[in-house]
Design a protein around this nucleic acid. Structure first.
Lengths: 225, 225
DNA sequence: TCCAAAACCTAACACTAGTTAGAAAATAGG
DNA sequence: CCTATTTTCTAACTAGTGTTAGGTTTTGGA
């Protein structure tokens, strides 16, 4: 049995992780193959052994970014009992979305920074994946509405845009070592469902401060606003 | 009276507007002086008569982006009567924020695309301006809370991040000719204050479709999700 | 130990970037 | 019309871009 092409998956991932970090910091056009190579402890030419072009690399990064979120949310929803309420589903989806984008934060941020500059064909494919994810949320909201859990005047499409916008923005300010994902998810769900003036049954948020988190190089801050 | 330096403000603005559109589409690194020149019907070298460098240009674009929002929101708040409720202030601020980022959409989008790639010093200054705007919102929410309009468990900081995240994301999906800014603002305020399950007094959103809007070249879509 | 496959490196190619100096054109007041 | 000022253009320079061909080292099984 001749196992011909079996590129070391680990060094390929090293390149990919490095690419995500550089794309995250410098966007698509601002990223040079030489910078990625530096980050991965390689020379520029060597990258082409693993990926056949810069476009090939950014494609892989973009796909991982959205797929991590989609898979995580769908798994979380599937693991809920059939008896779960709309509220429970929404809260679970928010938590799953948050933990996914924090987990693969480099890829998520790289997407936000680079997607707008990427060649048309690449962006089109990724956008299709993202729209598909949007329809998952549309379904969650529609189900909850049908169950009578929402006021009749609620505009589900606008609500979805509102929720996903707020969630996607979290990567800009969320820093590990501060608030826990669970707390943020709970409060977000509470705002979306009960509103700020409503009488949500939400417990007060405990300001936990876990281990100070290793000081890795992090993305440039964009400010909360 | 020797009026020496009085550069035509109009052709300077032509360059600036062109720069905003190109930065919006290609980010900071992806934007070339030659592309800006093309958009402004000039040759690359001529830009340097109005702005002394690429960094000088992006700085101007970034500042306009955040200042338009800050000024518009503060003006809207100031125009309210002292008797205005917290809800009214929040709704007014949302509407003002939305109309500002739609109005100067090229500059706002350029900011979102380019800010992360811009040289440190430039970003730092702009980030300070943005944080300042965040504190305006913090004050709006704190006032409403003190007036007893919020449930006691509400976390104002998270709520602010949530609201501003959702608002900033609107530039990705809002297109003139569809929903009106007023409708979006009203529904957003309703979600934030009453929640989806609360019994807000919000009127049903009318799906108005005004004049089809001139077909200018628009930013590449990023998908709602 | 030997050797083929895998992984990486070197050095270069064609091209494009921001920027500049100086010439040319447009403009406006007298 | 003349001329001084403002505005734009031309043409180039240096530095850095993605990519490639071909050589070198490393690796792991026989």
């Amino acid at each position: 049995m001749t196992k011909k092409l079996a590129k070391s998956a680990i060094s390929q991932k090293r390149v990919l992780d490095a690419a995500a970090r550089i794309f995250r910091d410098y966007g698509y056009a601002g990223t040079t193959m030489r910078a990625i190579a530096d980050e991965a402890d390689l020379r520029a030419g060597s990258i082409y052994y693993h990926y056949k072009s810069k476009d090939d690399l950014i494609s892989a990064v973009l796909d991982i970014g959205i797929r991590a979120v989609t898979d995580n949310v769908e798994a979380a929803l599937k693991s809920l009992p059939d008896t779960a309420t709309g509220r429970e589903r929404i809260e679970a989806a928010i938590r799953a979305h948050l933990s996914a984008i924090i987990e693969v934060g480099d890829y998520t941020l790289a997407t936000r920074r680079a997607l707008g500059q990427v060649p048309e064909a690449i962006r089109a494919r990724n956008t299709r994946m993202r729209d598909q994810y949007g329809s998952v949320w549309q379904k969650i909201l529609a189900d909850a509405h049908e169950r009578g859990e929402f006021r009749t005047s609620a505009n589900l499409t606008l609500a979805r845009l509102f929720i996903l916008g707020a969630l996607n923005w979290t990567v800009e300010w969320f820093k590990p070592g501060g608030r826990s994902i669970d707390d943020v998810a709970r409060e977000f769900a509470s705002v979306v469902l009960d509103g700020l003036s409503g009488n949500g049954a939400t417990a007060a948020i405990a300001q936990e401060v876990p281990p100070p988190a290793k000081a890795k190089r992090s993305a440039p801050r964009i400010s909360a606003a």
